[in-house]
Amino acid sequence: MLLKPKTSILQKIYLPDIIIGLWITIKNFFFGKKVTIQYPEERRNYSSRLRGMHYIKTINGVENCTACMLCPTVCPAECIHIVAGERPDKEKYPISFEVDVLRCCFCGMCEEACPKDAIKLSNIYEMSMLKRSVYEKDFLLEQRGHK
């Protein structure tokens, strides 16, 4: 059974409610505190724990990553693709390392899973691109937004 809410005659004719609503709008518009900012010139201060653009940490120019595949394993969006290989100075390293950011949900689980402190999410949040963005290894190795 549908219960009809009890309404007074004033509510039934709507007009007083509309006037009250309009007054709230006018009050906030003219006298309220502004919530928007002039974006590119003005910026907000985000927490240093913000999860933004990925990068792979390097030490003396050598990537920390050993291609253990824990980050692709844990990634719920399945957006990390790694091919592992061997080279003289490093037993196992990623030949290619791709992050398909369009699929990424920025959960930060890869960062958490990494035993080598290699993949990290920086503070950079400006990531719009004109084409589908897949971050390749070379791109990830630039220490952008190092933290």
């Binding site: 050993t66 253990c68 824990l70 037993e91 196992k92 035993p115």
Partner: peptide, 9 residues
């Protein structure tokens, strides 16, 4: 303890 690079892992 090199499980990250070990294939047996």
């Amino acid at each position: 303890l090199d499980c990250p690079i070990c294939d047996k892992s």
